[in-house]
Design a protein around this nucleic acid. Structure first.
Lengths: 349, 349
DNA sequence: GCCGATCTTCGGAGCGCTATGATGATGCGG
DNA sequence: CCGCATCATCATAGCGCTCCGAAGATCGGC
């Protein structure tokens, strides 16, 4: 004599059925009201909304996702969350996609393909509506998982060949070129590059080679001094790297930095040592961070299209989800912001 | 004559049943193997694993979550993702909780209760294992939703009364006191406070009142000059605020900043105007950011327990999830880092 | 050799929702 | 005044998994 009603795994959460009961309609109608409000009569709609408010009903997304075989989740992988540069892109995406009822799942790769692979694997088991990755370098397995999954993929913050699907970014090589060209125009002839984690940060590396290219093209085959800051806090590491550079190449008259934080550190060290910027050494950064216009002297830099990337990615994602046609490659460019740190009268005149 | 088998919403994903069929066991056993491998015999275990590998089976988290009525997701709400200060807390949490198989859902409130409420509502519908909020100020509805949900809640980055559940942070009032006391000890007598978004950033406000308290207690009832930077990029806004302060209170000899980025902006402006720091005006910031030790002069500041909070929150969350007893209030303190920007020989001697 | 204890495996009823087709109500032309 | 679209609402069958309880297998002890 088996007991038919075995112990239910009670959840005592308010369910759609509870709302339906209170509003005296069927659960289907509640579901319909929630998904397509204008296919339900105003009268019922109000009654349902009332019930929802009274009960404090919160839909169970799991159940919805399971039934509909999709989630309104978009997986986003950035190299680092600490890096403010990606933060504002993510912020913009959040805004644009949040408005459309999408939820961002945020993960970071720590600039490592293996980490990225793990994050992508996890995210994919959420059946996301789309995936957004940073850059074009991914492990073979990551690429396989993504192409097998038929989830729309957008790669951002870089331009290059063999994108998985859609690509939104700008050319870091061109950035490097522009940085070096700018310093050369300002009269620098012995230009160094200071970066950090060049071994893993593919985009920084691209900027570096762009910069080297420009040196070669414009100054002839010029020896390039590249310094990779050690670990530790960026600005402090840059102080040390700068000191190191002065020791090994005292004749340096211009520095391209992989980012503004490094430049800030060097700028401080320069002042401490009585080195005049830009007269003794000109400097240009990358990122146009919050403080870049307030350093002493104000830092010349490159403004990457941070927010623009976020917006464009959001737009692409939405179009892909809706199956509408769209561009698969977007070059958003960048902007050179010349400021005091590279303004040398000598040659401008 | 209704057709019994209506069109199935085919999903052609590999399911647990497929694995079970291939391994010639029941689906329950596959499920058991996945959840508690050592309750299944080695032989079957291997057969099942083989089938999983052959088919490339990826479990459907949605289905699992629905059935088990829980997810391995932890909702985290910070005021702003752009703020590097929270980034490192989140980073630490990510690491600690990720190791335990939990996934962080990250959202931001933009310092607004209404935004926070929306985010919390969304997150709750994922039935998270726990929720982590920043600060103690939440809308009535937010508090209601959270307490109704029986989801463990941790509030962080603040200390105070009436926590929802567990509290991990430090006293911002004490920070403000320490900042002001430090400047007073350094000989400052006419101390100002420069902050931003004081109307909405509850913790900055607490630091401000702490600072005022110290001024009252140590210097007698002293007029306090509080400047709330306008909108825009922080460092630039701080330059302007600093200029404003100099105009309205030219006798100011010490400034407490709500964060290091503001101090950086003011530091630049001071140099530009030939104001000597710390001799003319001493400064102290908050946050101990990347660059704080590289400014000119190096910036005295307060190091909040960023990573420590992340670790403690992770620990609390895990304990609460496992139902183990734990503290409900953790004061992690902070550290005063005295540097050049407030070192005045006059009084130290 | 039989019975209960122990361990492994399995059957199947949900979890809360969506989506499809059915059903009843309404309106309108003929 | 009837038949037939048209529209709003509903009943119901899953989505893929977990977990309860039961069945089968194995093993000692008396």
């Amino acid at each position: 004599m088996p007991n038919k009603s075995r112990a239910r795994r009670s959840t005592q959460r308010v369910t759609m059925t509870d709302v339906a009961k209170l509003a005296e309609v069927s659960a289907s109608t509640v579901s319909l009201y929630l998904r397509k409000p204008d296919e339900v009569s105003t009268q019922l709609g109000q009654r349902i909304q009332g019930a929802i408010d009274t009960l404090g009903y919160v839909p169970n997304l799991m159940a919805g996702a399971l039934a509909a075989a999709r989630t309104r989740v978009i997986g986003v992988v950035v190299p680092s969350m600490v890096n403010a540069i990606f933060a504002s892109t993510v912020n913009t995406m959040q805004k644009a996609l949040g408005d459309q009822g999408y939820q961002l799942l945020l993960g970071h790769s720590d600039y490592a393909e293996a980490e990225e692979e793990a994050v992508v694997r996890t995210f994919l088991s959420w059946s996301p509506s789309a995936m957004v990755l940073t850059g074009l370098n991914h492990s073979r397995e990551t690429r396989r998982m993504l192409s097998n999954s038929d989830v729309p993929v957008v790669e951002m913050w870089e331009l290059g060949s063999n994108p998985l699907d859609t690509l939104v970014g700008f050319s870091h090589r061109d950035v490097g070129r522009a940085q070096a060209r700018h310093l050369i125009k300002a009269g620098c002839r012995r230009i160094a590059f200071i970066g950090t984690r060049l071994g893993v940060d593919e985009r920084a590396k691209q900027r570096q080679s762009g910069s080297e290219e420009a040196l070669r093209d414009l100054l002839g085959s010029q020896h390039t001094r590249v310094i990779d800051c050690g670990p530790g806090r960026m600005a402090e590491a840059a102080s040390r790297a700068f000191a190191e550079l002065l020791a090994s190449h005292p004749d340096t008259d211009g520095i391209v930095f992989a980012n503004d934080m490094l430049a800030l550190g060097a700028l401080g060290e320069a002042q401490r040592r009585g080195i005049r910027v830009p007269d003794d050494i000109a400097m240009i950064g990358f990122g146009d961070m919050d403080f870049s216009n307030c350093t002493l002297p104000p830092l010349s830099t490159i403004r990457p299209p941070r927010e623009e990337i976020g917006e464009a990615v959001a737009r692409c994602v939405l179009r892909r989800i809706q199956g509408r046609p769209q561009e698969t490659r977007l070059d958003l460019g960048f902007e050179l912001l010349p400021r005091e740190s590279s303004r040398r009268v000598t040659v401008d005149a």
